[in-house]
């Protein structure tokens, strides 16, 4: 009897608990749920992570074939994109070179420019020269000036049939007449077989300073006037010397020359103009 009574009372309590839970206000239920989630969220998160990892591993094991294929496809895609990138970079550089070339052609509008590739370099430490793939059949002759995007490169030392040797501006036999762009002082730039050139014969009173730009003077009748040679980096003034000296950084990186331009001759139109001018002078005389 007592056993039946206890069972009944247990059932009664259970129903009572269920009723209480059911009849609890919804806000309380929500907060208690959140408390529960908050308490167990680290555990849930841990379990979830591990489960996902295990599931992924099994999934990868089951789909290893397709994963391998996908990996291979992606690798191919990456390689293809890489080569595209290199090609685009090359195109970009070519575009820049062509723009520079156009600018250069405009600068030397009155002259004929022969584009040449550098195919060799001087093998000794004492001389600085390059070999280009253009020669007499392309109109290249000895003593023709050679320029690049940056400025003066040198002169044609000897020209063969299809190739020529160029004496670079930094060769120790190289000389070029220059003007200091800011002060208009005349001087001579000489090579020293190093990366730095030397500016000589600048009068002592000249106000030259580092940063001044040097351009060709055109007095030697080899280089056209106004081509950039370099920039003064250091000025020397010695008490017992008649002239000032300066170290000059050339604008052209001689070690990285890939293509150069040989100035071969003036345009025929320009020549005609000169002839006309000479004829006029003769008539006047």
């Amino acid at each position: 009897m007592s056993e039946r009574g206890s069972k009944k009372s247990l059932l009664f309590y259970l129903v009572l608990i269920v009723l209480i839970i059911t009849l609890l206000p919804s806000s309380w239920k929500h907060s208690s749920r959140m408390t529960f989630i908050r308490l167990f969220s680290p555990v849930m998160s841990f379990v979830n992570d591990k489960t996902v990892k295990v599931r992924d591993t099994f999934s990868a094991l089951f789909h290893i074939g397709s994963v391998k294929k996908e990996n291979k496809d992606l690798r191919n895609q990456v390689e293809s994109l890489k080569s595209d990138l290199v090609y685009l970079e090359e195109l970009k550089l070519e575009n820049k070179r062509l723009r520079d070339l156009l600018e250069l052609k405009e600068t030397f509008g009155e002259y004929d420019l022969v584009t040449a590739n550098v195919i060799g370099r001087d093998a000794t430490n004492w001389n600085k020269s390059i070999i280009i793939d253009k020669g007499e059949i392309h109109g290249v002759e000895s003593k023709d000036p050679v320029v690049s995007y940056g400025g003066v490169v040198g002169i044609v030392f000897t020209s063969g049939r299809k190739e020529s040797k160029i004496m670079l501006l930094n060769d120790n036999n190289s000389r070029v007449g220059v003007i200091v762009q800011r002060t208009r002082d005349l001087g001579v730039v000489e090579g020293q077989s190093t990366d730095v050139l030397i500016l000589k014969y600048i009068r002592k009173t000249a106000d030259i300073k580092p940063g001044d730009i040097l351009i060709t003077s055109g007095t030697g009748q080899i280089y056209p006037k106004g081509v950039k040679v370099g920039e003064i980096i250091k000025v020397f003034e010695e008490k017992f010397r008649l002239y000032k000296f300066a170290e000059v950084k050339p604008d052209v990186n001689f070690g990285k020359l890939e293509e150069v331009f040989v100035i071969t001759r003036r345009d025929s139109e320009d020549e005609n103009q000169q002839e006309d001018a000479q004829a006029q002078i003769q008539e006047e005389e």
Binding site: D122, A123, T124, W126, N127, S129, F157, K165, M167, D171
Partner: peptide, 8 residues
Amino acid sequence: AMSICSIG
């Protein structure tokens, strides 16, 4: 031989 390799 050296002069062949240079403009000197």
